[in-house]
Design a protein around this nucleic acid. Structure first.
Lengths: 341, 341
DNA sequence: TTTCGCAATGTTACCGGTAACATCATCGAG
DNA sequence: CTCGATGATGTTACCGGTAACATTGCGAAA
């Protein structure tokens, strides 16, 4: 209140200290390590804090101690059906330990991701969380130099340096083929998303190709030109089924495409899985409500957020989170067999 | 590098200044108001910034200038189908102007909300965004004293002091009745959610009651005891339709309940809307894919995030966002008539 | 030529905490 | 009774920026 600079107009440690008749560092200790402050002073300080409505300024604290309690996360998108659960569980776990989440979305653009990372690093977050293994060169450089823990989620690439929390998209592709092949299907097609942004989907396609080849079957990849997932699905179904040797089964890059394909097919009088088996990825909320309900693979979205948070908290030495830090965290996907395949 | 305290080990304004042969404030100005720095110095500074990989420390900047560039938002949940779009558009609009989003979820608990607000205020965010008009007393006290702009979203209560960006839940309730009444239905029931947390749903119920009464019809509110939305929906359908004078139409508090009710009814051999008209709220992603597709009301989720961000940016005086600040922002809901009613 | 105004740059102190070190009181061992 | 270990509290300076005020240089007006 006395300086020539105005400040926030809120009570500071110094105000509290003065009112309680102690030094400001004691107030600081009262919050950080209450056990080393005597009961008498604790009471006086508590009273002063209350009287002044004191709230610690985390920006100042972080600056002085060089470790703030915010964690930054860049995710492709928030509103989609995929990542929301990861964000939710990640955020909850952090909040539980007094950390706050700084969030931005990249829309599957590595340039936007780099922008976000650059902006975040300016806050010196306690940790940085990215999605997938695919980044721009600039991002790679930034994270290589970063001093805080970095975690990559939704992918699992043991060769990479950052902590990995996710699963192998290639294996998901193989697993899909395996399931359909086990049911006797031979002419199995794969429908990619036209959006070149989601690079992990290409890994699933590669897994599909590999496993098909191992079975001596010919891979058959269709790339829609439409961006809208429902339109793209329609395009795929029309192209793959309205021919002399139609596909017996179709693996779609995600449930949105699969749903679009099924709806389009149904309107054209096709029946699933009688005319063609349909296989998705993602287990979106609507997938079990479709008619027929969609056979798909559920990625461990919630678990990814949880484990990523735990690894970070461990690395930061949060006492309440026991166990050693684990750099590689391979989580399980669950194949959900429903009516469509 | 010289002090006895370690710092982050990253380059600072001072390092850049030394290398460029200028004073540190000039480097600061180079970032904040480049136009008042001469071209010659700008070039030298740019070079130094590059050579040192300098990244401004926003925490320090915010502390010194008493206005940081983060905005805090508390939302009931991230992963649900409702708020994700609001978060997404809000975050995008902020990022576009160099602000970052700090996010936490309350799970419809006013106590959790208060915790989050308290934690956020410690970061002295440039603005604070809450959901709905219902808060704890503690939260009310905190926002009354807050010095930064506060915005309430997903509701519209002109009497309240904070900036309002949303719609009237009471009106939504009335509008639902109006639509069904216009179709000739008389015995119209309302199914509330058992979760007492979502207080706005009660406003929709009140609107339903008011409009029914105005039409001389008797309100009929059913409160499920089951927490799971699908189970609750089943419970409601059983209770409202398996009786001598069954409901002719049911308004559900949200699309989840409505979907649960329809699936349960379909399994029991009922047909919609022949046996009963079904009306939801929320326009969730799956609603148009149900069989029959669900008649519902689409809340302006994306618009809320956008407008909230714009109002905040205007209040903060972001030059690039023109127009006066508007305290009341009533956005339109859209009634989507589909097959179920 | 002198003076004034303004643009460009620098000096100093301060934002609100906390690390590092200093000091003081207490208490048990020698 | 003295000394040193231990625990509680205080002093000082510093984290990395920027507000406020000071200074300098230069051109236009008088």
């Amino acid at each position: 209140m006395s300086g020539k600079r105005k400040g926030l107009g809120r009570a500071t440690v110094h105000d509290v200290a003065k009112l309680a008749g102690v030094s400001s560092i004691t107030v600081s200790r009262y919050f950080k390590q209450p056990d080393i402050v005597s009961q008498a002073l604790r009471d006086r300080i508590a009273e002063a804090v209350n009287a002044l409505d004191y709230l610690p300024n985390h920006a100042a604290g972080g600056l002085a101690s060089t470790r703030g309690r915010i964690v930054a996360m860049v995710i492709p998108n928030i509103s989609g059906p995929i990542f929301a659960n990861t964000i939710q569980s990640f955020s909850d776990e952090l909040n539980r330990h007094g950390y706050q989440l700084l969030l931005a979305s990249s829309y599957f653009s590595v340039e936007k991701e780099e922008d976000a990372v650059r902006a975040f690093l300016g806050w010196s977050p306690a940790a940085l969380v990215l999605t997938s293994q695919y980044h721009s060169e600039g991002t790679e450089r930034l994270i290589a130099k970063a001093t805080m823990p970095v975690v990559e989620t939704w992918d699992y690439v043991p060769e990479r340096k950052p902590v990995q929390v996710g699963f192998s998209h290639v294996d998901v592709g193989r697993q899909s083929v395996e399931y359909l092949h086990g049911k006797g299907y031979k002419r199995i097609a794969f429908v990619q998303n036209s959006l070149i942004g989601d690079l992990s989907a290409l890994d699933r396609r590669d897994g599909y190709i590999a496993r098909m080849t191992e079975h001596g079957l010919e891979p058959w990849v269709f790339v829609p030109t439409q961006a809208d997932p429902f339109e793209a699905g329609r395009q795929a179904v029309n192209s793959l089924l309205l021919r002399k040797q139609p596909a017996e089964a179709i693996i779609f890059a995600n449930d949105n495409l699969a749903a679009g394909g099924m709806l389009a097919g149904a309107r054209a009088g096709m029946r699933f899985p009688e005319d063609c088996a349909i296989f998705g990825f993602g287990n979106y909320a609507f997938s079990e409500m479709l008619l027929p309900s969609l056979t798909t693979i559920r990625p461990p979205a919630r678990e990814i957020g949880e484990v990523a948070a735990l690894r970070i908290l461990q690395t930061l030495g949060e006492a309440s989170v026991e166990g050693p830090v684990q750099r590689l965290n391979l989580l399980d996907c669950e194949l959900i067999a429903r009516e469509s395949a």
